[in-house]
Design a protein around this nucleic acid. Sequence first.
DNA 1: CGCGAACTTGAGGCGTGTCAACCCCTGTGG
DNA 2: CCACAGGGGTTGACACGCCTCAAGTTCGCG
Lengths: 247, 247
Amino acid sequence: MVSSTLRPRHRASRGVECQHCNLCDLCLPAGLMPEELRRVGGRLVAGRRKVGEDEVLFHAGDRFDAIYAVWTGFFKTVLRSSAGRRQVTGFQMAGELLGLDAIDTGSYGVDAVALEDSEVCVIPYHRLATLAGRLAPLQAQFHRLMSRQIASDQAAMLQLGSMCAEERVAAFLLDLLHRLEARGGSATAMRLRMSREEIGSFLGLKLETVSRTLSSFHARGLLVVRQRDITVLAPDGLRQLLERAAA
Amino acid sequence: MVSSTLRPRHRASRGVECQHCNLCDLCLPAGLMPEELRRVGGRLVAGRRKVGEDEVLFHAGDRFDAIYAVWTGFFKTVLRSSAGRRQVTGFQMAGELLGLDAIDTGSYGVDAVALEDSEVCVIPYHRLATLAGRLAPLQAQFHRLMSRQIASDQAAMLQLGSMCAEERVAAFLLDLLHRLEARGGSATAMRLRMSREEIGSFLGLKLETVSRTLSSFHARGLLVVRQRDITVLAPDGLRQLLERAAA
DNA sequence: CGCGAACTTGAGGCGTGTCAACCCCTGTGG
DNA sequence: CCACAGGGGTTGACACGCCTCAAGTTCGCG
């Protein structure tokens, strides 16, 4: 008994059907049976929105009404303190959600900025809440994704709180590669979408330190770095860097 | 002092009714109307469990089947890396939830340790999921609490990634006081439940640095510190420390 | 072809870590 | 009631990793 509300026809308003999306086993509908997927149909995603490189999907403080799922492209989220400090709190790629921190306060807490030309699925929160109430597997998957964000934020806290610069950079590279591999990318090579400064902000380091650390890895034969192209030659070498740590 | 989490005798058989709990507007049932609260009745909380000081509520890796809500007392959560690094990822007090990071993987990701004699409400996740599917306001509040945890973890990332030691300690004290005040405590005085080392682990500092910083605040007349008793004399002084920061 | 942004590299300073000594509380047992 | 032990906390001296500042290089793009 969802009444199909009449909405003005503009580009982003056409329903998008999850069952025809190639990301459906990575994103919100993951774990749904074909029959359930069909029930979701086009009622979850209100539409797609293009966000050009360096454009802002939403600003901290904007009124919250939708979660966004990255469909194509790459984003960063930036938290700004009242004192003007800035901290990159994460990088998001296909199938990952943006805006989860806004449910509590009703307004977004971070800026979401595209690092390359991107497209996102617009998921009005009230639609998600309604559908999740009826479709237990959808609710379950939504909870899993929020939970995953919590776990990944805590992993970031571990990096920031108890690793030295080399370890942070190594962990960062391995995490990125792992996520790209899960999306069909190479397990060893990638093109970074973010600048040294953005990496540094995420890792609590200055851009020079990031640069020096990458150069050092290069010199030790762990990887090849040429600007934003990185090829890891010895992933186990990076992993060992993380393993051999004092308590 | 080492204790096992396998303690069947703590398993309470009687349901606990949220509508008779003094925390009901801080915790999971917050925002529910009396009528809805009655519908929840004793079907959400399976029972209460006592956890003595230094005892472990759950270990990282334990199979996940319940969320816990702190009823009385005080907890810390500790994330351990494969290399043996340890990071305190948070401190939890009355009305706050433990175990949210476990929904995704099906096992807890951190250790939860009581810092004083405590009691928690045991909320089997399947019960919560079922009830949330039927009671939209309960679902909404659960989402808000997960969202709040994400936002607070990101605030911690900001502290760890872009603040100096003094700023971290000031922010930490103000946050603790704020949360205690929301629970009816004093806005200026408190007894810390955790050691300098645990504060340091949370803030990414060594215990000596925490101690020195508190001494320095004391010397400047911002607060009085005597072991674990802290009285803030100039909360605005602490706030100013945070405000006057370079970008 | 040349400008600017991003990146790299170097030299020196500073904040926090490390190591060690000491102090203060609390609990315990004579 | 006091002596003592032990853990947590404080303080000091020094070391070191990362930051700061600055110069130079590479690359993309008009």
